[in-house]
Amino acid sequence: MTHTVAAETRTGRPVTFGILRRLPEHLAIWVPLLLSAGHLVSFALWTVWISFTPSTLVPVSGWVGLRNYTAVMATRNWQIAFDNLLLFGCGFVLLSLLTGLLLAVLLDQRIRGENVLRSIFLYPIALSFVVTGTVWSWLLNPGLGIQKLVNDIGWTSFRFDWLIDRDMAIWTIVIAAVWQSSGFAMALFLAGLRSVDADLIKAAQIDGAGPIRMYRRVILPTLWPITVTVVVIQLQFAITTFDLVRALTGGGPGLATQLPALVVYDLMFQRGLLARGAAAAVLMLLILLAVLLPYAGWRYLQRRQAAHA
């Protein structure tokens, strides 16, 4: 399969005619690829460039160095968003990982109705974050949802008002996000559990390992490459979270659930500070790269090891 497209012309006719004859196939190959790659590279570079200009309402050229970056990072808005991202990222990733793993291990016990259960844990993934956020904003609203229900039943001192509590509001985002994406972690873990070497399990059984020891010592250790993948994907989602917060809390109360993606949107389209918005977007990209580059390096090493083995 190593011949090139151009070398295919064996007709002996002039090369230009060959190219013309092959025009449709060149178009089919290059137009989608160039559209995709071209827009990615030029859009990313353009946004990086704008972040170094003094642009406000319209893009202008000029060079202000890192001034937009220092300005963004000095705002309370960004600082809160960044702290929230750390909290949300860690809480969400950890909880959805544990929930997903627990569900996968439970479903792996050859239980009846596995397909139904799997569908139940996965269905939130089919929903948009706007729907998820709206529904959870009702359930978690102390005057409408769970708290109101428990109060009405008779436990009048029951409080579950994280949605309007500045310190706890970020955890409402965690709850909704865990509900939405634990099923995804479960699906990947389950696939991993199902591909554990049967000989490994048999050998452990002969050694007299009980089910708990079996999981801790034999099965779970084989899952760690999948764990890394799940963590990276969930972190990527956490860093770019936007819709969920817009629908659930709108970033409030106050700035309590502000996240970087909301800061970017606010700067670009509500305050008309294009350069600062672009700088915040680039900061988001850098946070993402801090996760993705080590992952890419790890994957590369893994593949090389696999190739040598």
């Binding site: 827009h39 946004t47 704008i50 770019t240 993606a261 670009m268 977007a281 988001m284 993705l292």
Partner: peptide, 10 residues
């Protein structure tokens, strides 16, 4: 992997 935020302005 490229976040949507990097493409909004363009």
């Amino acid at each position: 992997f490229l976040p949507q935020q990097m493409r909004l302005l363009p």
